[in-house]
Amino acid sequence: MKSKKLLLSTLLILGGMATYLVLGSSSGGQMGVSTTGCGGGGCHAASAGTSLSVTGIPAAGFTAGSTYTMTLQVINSTKLAAGFDLTVNAGTMSNAPANTMLMGGTELHHTSPQTLASGTATWVFNWTAPATGSAVTFSVAGNAVNNTGSESGDGWSLSTVTFNKAIPASVETISNTGISLYPNPANNALQFKSNEEINTASFTAVTLTGSQMEIQSNKVNTHEYQLMISSLPAGNYILHANLDGKVYSKPLPSNSLYRGSIFKEAA
């Protein structure tokens, strides 16, 4: 009987240790925390001393279908090691670095903490841009730790980085191309009409600061599309129209909203 009690006690202790390792420790990485971090319930604490960096996309923006070498860094000058959970809302990550795990091409997390070198842990991976879409967002939670085996003294941080699609260098101005856009200003929809037949088309609204937003469109006939702009915030935009693989732009001159831009009026 004593041996059975001893065995039961040992199993309970081991079970408790296993539960702590799973729930109370994240040295092997956590999934699903890239936008929330590891806070609450005794799991680490947020720290202003931990900063994060995601780089690798050119300043001009990404090109659809292109693959980029991305760099993630967790920085904290007072800690010894770090880990992370990173997600991306479009495109595909690949070439996962050592001691990390890639989940479905859209989530990457550490499986073993990386020792900080001069206060920085660095991971390099690849990301392939999606075929469609005008922007992509990386969300990351990074945790810098002191390697004491407990959460005390560790510090995590969150970061969200958005990259825009590059504006093609060879964009032809719509002026004098037989293309009309009306009514302008408009609130809910614009009519886009071309003298030439259009087989495929996509439309993007570009703000004066370079941000891009896709415009939903309905094909009326081979010469005309209806552009749905009700979801755009009120303001001035430059229209980019991709017609059968060639991009046209309606630029913004200083003297005429109608001739030079889309103008989305306030509701």
Rank of each mutant, 00 (worst) to 15 (best):
T122K: 10
M103N: 09
M17D: 04
T120S: 10
N126D: 15
S157M: 03
M101S: 14
L86K: 00
S27L: 12
A46R: 10
A121E: 04
A121Q: 02
S112A: 13
C43F: 10
M101H: 03
C43S: 13
S25Y: 05
L102S: 02
S51I: 07
S25Q: 10
S139E: 05
Y20H: 10
S139L: 03
F62H: 07
G29T: 00
I75M: 12
A144D: 01
A64W: 11
M17G: 08
T137N: 06
A96Y: 01
A48S: 14
T35W: 01
T111G: 04
H109Y: 13
S26Q: 14
G133D: 05
L72A: 04
I57L: 05
M70W: 00
S66I: 07
L80M: 13
H109T: 13
W156K: 03
F62A: 01
A131D: 12
L116I: 06
A144W: 07
W156N: 08
S94N: 01
G149C: 04
T111L: 00
V54L: 02
F62K: 09
F138R: 05
G37E: 04
A141N: 14
G39M: 04
V33F: 03
G153M: 11
S25I: 04
K79P: 13
S134Y: 14
H110K: 06
S66E: 14
G65V: 12
S118K: 08
T137R: 09
G105F: 00
N95K: 07
V74G: 09
T63I: 14
T120L: 01
S152G: 13
L86R: 01
G142V: 03
T122D: 10
A129I: 09
S26A: 14
G105C: 02
T69E: 06
A135V: 05
Q30S: 14
G104A: 00
A141H: 09
A64Q: 13
T148P: 04
A129N: 08
D85Q: 00
P58F: 08
G91R: 03
S118Q: 10
A117K: 07
T63A: 03
G28W: 11
